[in-house]
Design a protein around this nucleic acid. Structure first.
Lengths: 114, 114
DNA sequence: TTGACATATGAACAGTTGTTCATATGTTTG
DNA sequence: CAAACATATGAACAACTGTTCATATGTCAA
């Protein structure tokens, strides 16, 4: 069973723990979400979008950073399928795209109030 | 009201969003938690500890990394009050210390199964 | 005390991240 | 068409992160 591991003290507990660890793909998609939310600018963006959709320059004002910086961050959130956007003329509106993230953010904001 | 902001298109929405953004302290404690969970090794540690307490060398086996690497990561989790430990002779047992993190992890694991 | 063991820590290093600046794209108005 | 505007993107750079290696600390047993 244990193929190549050394110095384990509690084999059963380790085995139980290992059974609970998701596979590498799942693991990386989880850490990807958490990493996305671990930057203050991106967290502000996501919290803001949890309330209503906003355009890039509004988000820049919310974050207190430049349009360019926000646009870079939005690309990251886009690639992770955390936000989606729609264009209306010159203006691009972003909103949350992942309901897991929505509930995650709302729960987190609840916890902060405690 | 708006003191020093430029180029905002939707003032009301921005104002609403800003009201929903936690203060800097809360913001940093949230991003701190998310950052802690954004590394695969630390995520594995926390998922493992969500099941039962484990010692350092067991956690090293779970993570597939060295005792030293795990110990460094555990210090980070300790500083963030995410884990606590107890010593039993030579062996140090870690377990989760923050129920917010416990529920966060359990919910996340539920989401993965979907 | 000495040796073995479990864990912790410091230094150093490669790899990653988030910003800025300059420039490019796409859209509307004149 | 050109000019103005909103957003996107690439390059570059400082700052940060996670690991390894060497060494230190703390505990038990002989």
């Amino acid at each position: 069973m244990d193929v190549c591991q050394e110095k384990i003290i509690h084999h059963e507990s380790v085995q139980k723990a290992l059974n609970n660890i998701p596979d590498m793909d799942a693991l990386h998609s989880i850490t990807g979400i958490f990493k996305a939310l671990s930057d203050p600018s991106r967290l502000k963006i996501v919290i803001a979008l949890a309330k209503c959709e906003l355009c890039v320059c509004d988000l820049a004002a919310v974050c207190g950073s430049s349009d360019s910086a926000v646009s870079h961050q939005l690309r990251i959130l886009r690639n992770l399928k955390i936000v989606r956007y729609r264009r209306e003329g010159k203006v691009v509106y972003y909103r949350l795209d992942d309901h897991h993230v929505s509930t995650l953010i709302n729960q987190t904001l609840e916890h902060v109030k405690e």
